[in-house]
Design a protein around this nucleic acid. Structure first.
Lengths: 195, 195
DNA sequence: GTCTATAAGGAGATAGAC
DNA sequence: GTCTATCTCCTTATAGAC
């Protein structure tokens, strides 16, 4: 509860996310963000101690939520059903609120984000997700399939260019295609010992 | 035939591509490139009239080759066989010489490249390729599938983390998974008129 | 073809008033 | 919580000598 004036902090985050996604992190200066908000650069520094920290604040709780997802997946058996459920949860998360914009930002600024702590955290999480999605089948093809299912969810925004399509429809299509990819990932033997 | 000294121009391109991919276009200064080559910034400006132009030179002939690919696809019927052949040609191109690094650079610097002419050209071509890959089936799912096949080829570098795997194997796996995605794209009716 | 020197500008960040 | 003013640093790019 720190919003005494009207949530300037949140407005900064919103504008920053938009500009970072549109033009890239490096190409967006603090001056630009400030001007959009009709404040000065110095005002930004009251709310965030650096430019990096704006990105951190953007990524923070997303990272946490993905962690929870991975933890859940680990507690489940490495079956096809688990993988489907995991991806469904992930898609729900991605399509909720303005989550998508954060992922779009992430996808489009990968290189820069490598040198930002927020970026590294996100990378780790996505790698972790991909690993969970092919748990039980460590073949190269399975790894590729797992990665592509994530990308199916992410790319449903720009890859599908049909006009007037709703987010719900995008999600449905992404999951249908992803399911097919998941189906090609094998399950480990049910432990041989059956008599 | 301009290499009087030893292809400084080519050495600049090589180092620039490497650093751009590693750290991002914006984060890589001309000073840095020059230092790696043990020359001064001014020397770079003899070979390229601006930083952008280095990127242009990198992307130039790739764009042309993709154009040829698209032109070829247009001359073919929009069948599954054409799509498979198109993706095979594309994969051959991507895995030839040091092409992969250029695509990796492109994938990782999308946002920045939006404001560079070279970047826009590449974007158009990849969109064109995706369109050709789902020619004859304009359903949203088909568009997503087409996009994912391209990504399958591109991502086979980092998505497959099996050690000691060769490029040939990566390509093979990428195409296998991609084929499955292509199989879900429909073909137009063979023109009804059969008796 | 490569150098030294420098111009010109914008970036992130800080100090301290209000 | 936001301002003005300023610091420091590094960038792309150019001019002209060798």
């Amino acid at each position: 509860m720190r919003e005494s004036t009207g949530g300037t902090r949140e407005r900064i985050q919103a504008v920053a996310l938009e500009l970072f996604t549109e033009q890239g992190y490096e190409r967006t200066s603090l001056r630009e963000i400030a001007e959009r908000l009709n404040v000065t650069k110095a005002a930004l520094y009251y709310h965030f101690k650096s430019k990096d920290e704006i990105v951190n604040s953007l990524v923070e709780d997303r990272v946490q939520r993905i962690d929870e997802l991975i933890a859940w997946a680990r507690s489940q058996p490495p079956t096809r059903a688990t993988r489907r459920a995991l991806l469904n949860k992930y898609a729900d998360m991605m399509f909720a609120s303005e989550q998508p914009s954060v992922m779009r930002f992430f996808e489009q600024n990968q290189t820069v984000l490598k040198s930002l702590s927020a970026g590294m955290q996100m990378r780790e999480r996505l790698l972790g997700l991909a690993n969970q999605l092919c748990q039980g089948d460590n073949s190269p093809a399975a790894q590729l399939r797992a990665t592509l299912t994530l990308f199916a969810v992410h790319s449903s925004w720009f890859a599908v260019r049909t006009p007037h399509i709703t987010d719900q429809e995008r999600k449905k299509i992404a999951l249908e295609v992803a399911d097919e990819l998941l189906a090609g990932i094998g399950e480990p033997e049910p432990d041989a010992a059956q008599d």
